[in-house]
Amino acid sequence: DVEPGKFYKGVVTRIEKYGAFINLNEQVRGLLRPRDMISLRAENLNVGDEIIVQAIDVRPEKREIDFKYIP
């Protein structure tokens, strides 16, 4: 289970104008929005990159997770 405030290692699987999709594993995926990329620009991300993200909002009923990148 993903808990708000905890840090996780994930892999960038898709990049859109509104953010990057980060997979923690095959069943868990969330969104890293540009406003939550402190000191990281979306254009510096590539599909396949491994990054550490913090879960900031977890909505299990919608199967949605928002992440924040903190260097």
Rank of each mutant, 00 (worst) to 15 (best):
D1P: 13
D1S: 14
D1H: 14
V2Y: 08
V2A: 04
V2N: 04
E3H: 12
E3Y: 12
E3A: 09
E3V: 15
P4C: 13
P4V: 15
P4M: 12
P4N: 08
G5M: 05
G5K: 04
G5F: 05
G5N: 06
K6V: 07
K6Q: 09
K6F: 07
F7T: 05
F7A: 03
F7P: 01
Y8H: 01
Y8M: 01
K9H: 11
K9D: 02
K9E: 04
G10Y: 01
G10R: 00
G10V: 09
G10H: 00
G10D: 01
V11A: 02
V11C: 08
V11G: 00
V12R: 00
V12D: 00
V12M: 01
V12G: 00
T13K: 03
R14S: 12
R14T: 06
I15F: 03
I15R: 02
I15C: 05
I15M: 06
E16K: 07
E16M: 13
E16G: 14
K17W: 15
K17L: 09
K17C: 11
K17H: 12
K17D: 10
K17N: 10
K17R: 13
G19H: 08
G19I: 10
G19R: 07
G19S: 04
A20P: 01
A20Y: 12
A20Q: 01
A20G: 01
F21G: 01
F21M: 08
F21H: 06
I22Y: 00
I22S: 00
I22M: 01
N23Y: 12
N23Q: 14
N23F: 09
L24D: 01
L24G: 00
L24A: 01
N25C: 12
N25A: 08
N25W: 10
N25H: 07
N25Y: 08
E26D: 14
E26Y: 11
E26L: 11
E26T: 13
E26R: 13
E26W: 14
E26I: 13
E26H: 13
Q27V: 13
V28T: 11
V28G: 04
V28H: 07
R29P: 05
R29D: 07
R29M: 14
R29L: 09
R29W: 13
G30M: 05
G30E: 03
G30W: 03
G30Q: 03
L31F: 07
L31W: 04
L31V: 07
L31Y: 03
L32N: 02
L32D: 02
R33M: 07
P34H: 14
R35Q: 12
R35K: 14
R35T: 10
R35Y: 07
R35S: 11
D36I: 08
M37S: 05
M37V: 07
M37G: 07
M37H: 04
M37I: 08
M37Y: 06
I38S: 12
I38A: 11
S39R: 13
S39I: 11
L40W: 07
L40G: 07
L40A: 07
R41Y: 10
R41S: 13
A42I: 15
E43Y: 10
E43Q: 10
E43T: 10
E43N: 11
E43G: 11
N44A: 13
N44E: 15
L45V: 10
L45D: 00
L45G: 01
L45N: 01
N46F: 10
N46C: 15
N46R: 15
V47G: 01
V47E: 04
V47T: 03
V47F: 02
G48E: 01
G48K: 01
G48D: 01
G48T: 01
G48L: 02
G48V: 00
D49N: 04
E50Q: 11
E50S: 13
E50P: 08
E50V: 15
E50H: 14
I51N: 00
I51R: 00
I51S: 00
I52E: 04
I52R: 05
I52N: 02
V53K: 00
V53H: 00
V53D: 00
Q54K: 08
A55F: 08
A55E: 02
A55G: 02
I56N: 02
I56W: 05
I56Y: 09
D57V: 13
D57E: 14
D57H: 14
V58Y: 09
V58C: 09
R59C: 08
R59V: 03
R59K: 06
P60W: 13
P60R: 09
E61G: 12
E61V: 08
K62W: 08
K62Y: 08
K62N: 08
K62L: 13
K62A: 10
R63G: 15
R63V: 06
R63L: 10
R63C: 13
E64G: 07
E64N: 07
I65H: 03
I65K: 03
D66V: 13
D66F: 15
D66T: 11
D66Q: 09
F67S: 02
F67T: 04
K68S: 09
K68A: 15
K68Q: 09
K68H: 06
K68I: 11
Y69S: 03
Y69E: 11
I70K: 06
I70G: 05
I70N: 09
I70Y: 12
P71F: 09
P71S: 14
P71T: 11
